[in-house]
């Protein structure tokens, strides 16, 4: 295929496929916990990280990971101490992240094309350095999910029950939030900050329509995300479309098909 003749497309596919595996994995836990909105919130915080990167002329992904992880820890602390409902905490961080981003961007002399690539994704411009980072952090995330799979599942399914069975649910929640923050930062490079939660949630809800067990649903969600990334990139390459939008639209198409098939 012509698409594989270009090194930038191979890099895009590698980054996209890694993200397509991690994003729905984390998304499954978030949807089960009814906390999917945290991905959207952290993607707004991630924009502030991008702004820091642009302002300091450094690789934005480092500042993005740092800021989203810090925010994720804070959100979890606020929610677990029940100082305010989790939704209210998210409602503080979402505009807060955006406000910081806007201020920093204005200091960095306003909007430029680089910023738009983070807003809407620019997978085809992923550098080799970013590929290593995405694959490295992706593998670490996969290892952590594998190691703590049962605890994550039990805590998201029934936190009170898990705590009474001796699971340290605060630590498990914290791990999930940190993994979410890292995943948001990595996914942002593929589909853009505004569409991050799409890749974490749409394949999961599509899989829920056809899965006959959690395990099946888990596998389907990864398969759907991989299909969305692959065909989205293919569409973007051959029809000259923005990759992020194409990926999300393919994911939505899969959701529509799964909804029809799942009803039978």
């Amino acid at each position: 295929m012509e698409i594989f003749a270009y090194s930038f497309m191979i890099r895009a596919l590698l980054a996209g496929l890694m993200v397509a595996i991690i994003a729905p994995l984390i998304g499954n836990f978030l949807v089960m916990k009814r906390f999917a909105m945290v991905a959207d919130t952290l993607s707004h915080v991630a924009l502030a990280g991008v702004a820091v990167g642009l302002l300091t002329a450094t690789q934005p992904i480092f500042a993005t990971i740092l800021l989203t992880v810090l925010s994720a820890i804070l959100i979890e602390k606020i929610a677990s101490k029940q100082k305010m409902p989790a939704e209210t905490a998210l409602a503080l961080f979402m505009p807060g992240g955006l406000a910081v981003a806007l201020l920093l961007i204005s200091l960095a002399n306003g909007f430029n094309s680089n910023l738009f690539s983070y807003l809407f994704g620019s997978i085809t411009t992923v550098s080799s350095q970013e590929i290593y980072l995405i694959i490295g952090l992706g593998l670490v995330s996969l290892l952590l999910i594998g190691k703590f799979y049962q605890q994550l599942l039990f805590t998201c399914f029934d936190e009170e029950g898990a705590r009474l069975k001796g699971i340290k649910t605060e630590r498990v929640n914290l791990l999930l939030m940190v993994l979410t923050a890292v995943t948001v930062s990595l996914t942002m490079r593929v589909v853009g900050a505004l569409l991050v939660s799409a890749l974490m949630v749409i394949p999961v809800v599509a899989a829920m329509r056809v899965g006959r067990s959690f395990k099946q649903s888990f596998v389907y969600s990864i398969l759907f995300a991989v299909l969305a990334v692959f065909f989205g990139l293919l569409g973007a390459f051959y029809f000259n479309l923005p990759a992020g939008g194409a990926i999300v639209l393919v994911a939505l198409l899969i959701f529509a098909v799964a909804s029809v098939v799942g009803r039978k």
């Binding site: 089960m32 049962q150 399914f157 029950g161 069975k165 829920m208 899965g211 006959r212 067990s213 959690f214």
Partner: peptide
């Protein structure tokens, strides 16, 4: 805490609709 079994009034799962089998509910422990 393994000495104590607790059954809540209403599982927080009941209205979620995530596909999870009876076996999986027990296995996740």
């Amino acid at each position: 805490w393994s000495q104590i079994g607790y059954v809540a009034q209403k599982s927080n799962f009941s209205s979620n609709g995530f596909p999870v089998t009876v076996y999986e509910v027990l296995r996740m422990t």
